[in-house]
């Protein structure tokens, strides 16, 4: 029962942060709402007996990604979007997201599943799987990160070509 209370607490933090991202008119508040939402997801990971994933979530999402987004906000001009306005076709977006929500919830209730009570996965087992069966995707992921790093540097570097202003 205590875990259910913590689950609802984390859910309120996650959904509140998410609503701040999509409804706030101040983009700094939106970034902070994103941070709250991501840390709430780390709480969900702890409730799921996955402390390593919670640590990674806080380090990478709560630390790196939100900070990078705030850097991007500082490098673009804040005055341009001091007052954010939504797209004029936002009711269509609302309908699309509500239809998606209905589909997901219907699928969640009507899919037959073979469930047992909540239990975690051994940390040794995760490491064993990651470095034996999924070793090649793991190496490819490191290549993806390297290429993204190089691509980011090349894309934003100053060049002498004509199209650069």
């Amino acid at each position: 029962m205590t875990s259910l209370v913590f689950f609802y607490l984390a859910s309120v933090i996650i959904l509140g942060g998410g609503l701040t991202v999509i409804l706030s008119s101040n983009i700094i508040y939106a970034a902070l709402g994103l941070m709250a939402s991501l840390i709430g997801v780390a709480g969900i990971f702890i409730l799921s007996f996955a402390p390593f994933l919670a640590l990674v979530q806080i380090l990478i999402y709560g630390g790196a990604i939100v900070i990078v987004i705030i850097f991007a906000l500082m490098l673009t001009k804040l005055e341009d979007f001091r007052t954010l306005s939504d797209h004029k076709h936002w009711p269509i977006a609302l309908i699309a997201s509500l239809v998606t929500l209905g589909t997901i919830i219907a699928a969640a209730f009507y899919t037959p599943t073979n469930l047992v009570s909540r239990r975690g996965v051994d940390f040794d087992k995760i490491a064993h799987e990651l470095f034996s069966q999924w070793a090649i995707p793991f190496e490819v992921a490191s290549l993806v990160l390297l290429i993204a790093l190089m691509g980011g540097v090349i894309m934003v570097r100053k060049t002498n070509s004509r199209d650069d202003k």
Binding site: S11, I14, L15, G18, L19, V21, I22, I27, S37, I44, F81, L84, S85, D86, H87, H89, W90, I92, A93, L94, A96, S97, L98, T100, L101, I104, I105, A108
Partner: peptide
């Protein structure tokens, strides 16, 4: 919870202009 968060994100992708 996952469905609600996904719907929120989808609305943001479709409706926000920044």
């Amino acid at each position: 919870l996952s469905g609600f968060l996904f719907a929120i994100g989808l609305y943001g992708v479709l409706a926000r202009r920044n």
